[in-house]
């Protein structure tokens, strides 16, 4: 019985094992950080969990249902939603329409979907640009739209893929506030992040991988003090 569990996940691309035997569990209500250097398999792991890739072997369980191999839209309907590292706004639609399209996951009626969308837009702080076309947003707002859209589908678990990349420090602080707010609303979060300051501040637990394999798992402070992690990921600067 666990909220979310990945069991010995393996994904091969030809001869390359992008993910090689990663297992972890996530408890309901926590923020679970996933760290690792470039090319260590974090995004592949997200693709496996959200149904964009089928694992070569291994299993994924979400609320006691096996979900590996299901189509992404089915997984979304179960309450697990992901965002993309390279944001994918529906460019020629307004912010509001982007979010309405997502909110239809919760209701079939346009009126109800619009109500949910507007609520979510306010919740995520995008109200000032709801009538703008998605393609005209700044990168910070695009990242925010990515999260808003995901939230509008009414998820229980949200996967955030490098939401902070490309944000300036003040935008980062706003995003941290938003993620805390999402957690407070009862949604569980798995977050992939490069920026250590962020991951150390908001995560309840952190799982570190490199070369597709688990390095260590624990509280943020435990993880940063692990020599393997320091060597593989944080480098000399953080060590000092």
């Amino acid at each position: 019985m666990s909220f979310f569990r990945a069991d010995n996940l393996v994904k091969h691309f030809g001869g390359l094992a992008a993910v090689n035997g990663v297992s972890f569990e996530v408890n309901e209500g926590e923020i679970f950080g996933l760290i690792g250097p470039n090319g260590s398999g974090k995004t592949t792991l997200f693709n496996l969990i959200s149904g964009f890739y089928k694992p070569t072997s291994g299993e994924v369980y979400f609320m006691d249902r096996r979900i590996d191999g299901l189509k992404p839209h089915k997984i979304n309907r179960l309450g697990l939603v992901r965002t993309f590292q390279v944001v994918r706004p529906l460019k020629r639609m307004t912010v509001e329409d982007n979010v309405i399209a997502a909110a239809f996951a919760q209701s079939g009626s346009l009126r109800e979907a619009r109500r949910i969308a507007l609520e979510t837009i306010e919740f995520c702080g995008l109200g000032r640009c709801k009538d703008m076309l998605a393609k005209s947003l700044t990168i910070g707002d695009r990242k925010r739209l990515e999260i808003t859209r995901a939230m509008a589908t009414g998820p229980k678990l949200i996967l955030l893929d490098e939401t902070f990349a490309g944000l300036n420090p003040s935008e980062q602080d706003e995003a941290i506030g938003l993620i805390r707010k999402i957690k407070a609303s009862g949604v569980t979060i798995i977050i992939v992040e490069h920026i250590m300051k962020v991951i150390m501040t908001i995560s309840d637990r952190v799982h570190a991988i490199n070369f597709g394999q688990t390095l260590t798992e624990g509280t943020p402070s435990q993880v940063v003090s692990n020599p393997g992690v320091v060597e593989a990921y944080l480098g000399e600067a953080y060590h000092a």
Binding site: H73, V81, R88, P89, R92, R149
Partner: peptide
């Protein structure tokens, strides 16, 4: 809305439950 989101980005639409 679903037709439009498919036009704009199939993978994003799929991840939003379409």
């Amino acid at each position: 809305y679903y037709f439009l989101s498919i036009r704009e980005d199939q993978d994003a639409a799929e991840s939003l439950g379409v």
